[in-house]
Design a protein around this nucleic acid. Sequence first.
DNA 1: GAAATAAAAGATAAAAAAGTCTTTTAATAT
DNA 2: ATATTAAAAGACTTTTTTATCTTTTATTTC
Lengths: 145, 145
Amino acid sequence: MSIFSKTCEYAMRAVFFIAHKTANGGRVGIKEIAMGIDSPEHFLAKVLQDLSKRGIVQSVKGPNGGFYLNAESLKQSLASIVEAVDGNRIFTGCGLGLKQCSEISPCPLHHDFKAIRNQINQLLVNTSIGECNEDLDLGITALKK
Amino acid sequence: MSIFSKTCEYAMRAVFFIAHKTANGGRVGIKEIAMGIDSPEHFLAKVLQDLSKRGIVQSVKGPNGGFYLNAESLKQSLASIVEAVDGNRIFTGCGLGLKQCSEISPCPLHHDFKAIRNQINQLLVNTSIGECNEDLDLGITALKK
DNA sequence: GAAATAAAAGATAAAAAAGTCTTTTAATAT
DNA sequence: ATATTAAAAGACTTTTTTATCTTTTATTTC
């Protein structure tokens, strides 16, 4: 596979998109999000429902409703999204899928993988949703062509 | 997910196991391999069939038959196993799953991910099957508890 | 060359992940 | 209050991944 599940990729893209669209207040609907990040609408709806329950994104029903991010959510790290969707496998798992792999009884890739995992950890824990949004706002980065 | 597919994890473990068991000549059968690395026998058989076709492992049918690694195979990199099983996604893919992501139009995680991908690349390309086996032989590393 | 052995190949099956469609609930505006 | 809007929830389908079982083919040994 490839580090994150497809569902998790959608989740991150969606959160970035919501942050970008609602930076100055307002809400954005599921249709617009799905279009904006090229994801299946109803599938993404499920994912966002889950993130909403966990308080990672905020939502309001009814007319003018939609998804948005409050100040606290903007401060959250990418790790919170990834953990919500994919669990803690990439934070803790062995590169060869061994349950018994540890410092005491390491697999052949253990030490190299520790370094890689640490780097992934640092990226996810030290990067906030808001930071990613700043780059998007400045047009430095993009979510779609 | 978690970097490699489960199938790929089995593949790497199996190759390491074969290397370890046949370092001084001989062959090792699918049953022993499956037991040795804790994987479903028939499923692993398929995986090894594929690796065998690609010349990543060697095999002989019949009595005293089984799998082994020739000198050339021992020199092969881990990347060849991973690419055979999982393709090139982890070598080239975008962290957010964007097809359009590139240096010119990067996603918010592009640069951080490039560093991570590079590190994974280096590990896989620069580590040979034989090297992993040396550590196993010395008892420094293990494939099972 | 017949019997035994072990991988290769083929056909299914089960489980997990990804995707779709319909109904319900909550909020808003008129 | 009622109509409207949009998310939440539920049921279901498809696809992909992982796993199992059976038959065939190649090799070796006797």
